[in-house]
Design a protein around this nucleic acid. Structure first.
Lengths: 162, 162
DNA sequence: TGAAAAATCATCCGAAAGGGTGACGACATT
DNA sequence: AATGTCGTCACCCTTTCGGATGATTTTTCA
């Protein structure tokens, strides 16, 4: 499946989508010229396709900024001891720094702690399962964990996970 | 090629593809009957329109997430001398009863939560690994969990685990 | 602008985990 | 004696994980 050298994949995908779109249009032109009502049909299809694609793109281009903000916006607030149930959890960024755990790795860890499988995590993060496994492996290594349950345990001990 | 900030390259490429698409469509207009050209034009317009909409939507989604995160990220720093963490944890026996989780199963769950493998648990409990797996399977079934991390998560939610 | 860091993806392989089924003995209840 | 629960163990099979390695792309930063 991956025999294609991975160049500028975006351009490739764009080209493919565009090509397929054009081909489809031209093909349907011959086949369905007579059918007038099919215009709305594939207009709608194209619309849905591009809307989904646009959403994906929007998510993608803003994702990085989001992670930045996540690390930057941490402001420290003194909380009295009797404050019960401090639900908003902020990971111990100091620990994270010293261990060299990246934002993405921590993100993966939290999803592991919630009981998701690698595949589910991959879906939620819009990456491949292989990528998730890489994040896992590196996070485990930095945490000195051999299993995900152990990683979660360690993460909670270190204040990285709620 | 670009002195343009790389962040917006995606959008740029997208726009270019859109332009190419339109150009192609208009080119084909000359080669085919004039009657159909409105279809393609319409499709292209709809596509671009919805792509823009999708991007806007994607941006909006992530922006909301950001604002949420911004309000949520509050970090307590100095929780003065909390009571020395009364370690004795009492599992919610009521929940355990209603779920029909046996003592041995809960014991296994606890060790799972501490990050042990089945083999290690078997050693600690002086039973075979198969037995541990049986306990796991039954506990997972009663908790509605498919993975041990999920079982741990559920167990903590239900007050079965510390 | 160029190096470093981070994120992404893949492949191979072995180990661990999970599902299903069946079975057996101990023990308590009925 | 019959029944039921619990703990124990085994086998088979599939899926998921984890380790090791190499590569490319994107982002950050000096």
């Amino acid at each position: 499946m991956d025999t294609i050298p991975i160049m500028k994949r975006h351009v490739l995908i764009f080209g493919l989508v565009g090509g397929v779109l054009i081909a489809t249009l031209q093909y349907t032109e011959y086949r369905f010229v007579v059918i007038e009502h099919s215009v709305e049909l594939y207009s709608a299809l194209v619309a849905i396709l591009f809307a989904a694609f646009g959403i994906w793109l929007g998510l993608r281009i803003t994702r990085n900024r989001e992670t930045i903000r996540e690390t930057v916006v941490v402001r420290e607030v003194l909380v009295p001891a009797e404050a019960p149930a401090p639900e908003p959890f902020a990971p111990n960024t100091a620990q994270q720094q010293t261990l060299g755990i990246t934002a993405r790795e921590l993100e993966t860890l939290t999803l592991i702690a919630r009981g998701f499988s690698n595949r589910e995590i991959a879906t939620q993060l819009f990456v491949s399962e292989n990528t998730v496994k890489t994040h896992c492996a590196r996070a485990f290594d930095k945490l000195g964990a051999a299993r995900r349950t152990q990683a979660v345990q360690r993460g909670k001990e270190l204040g990285l996970l709620p």
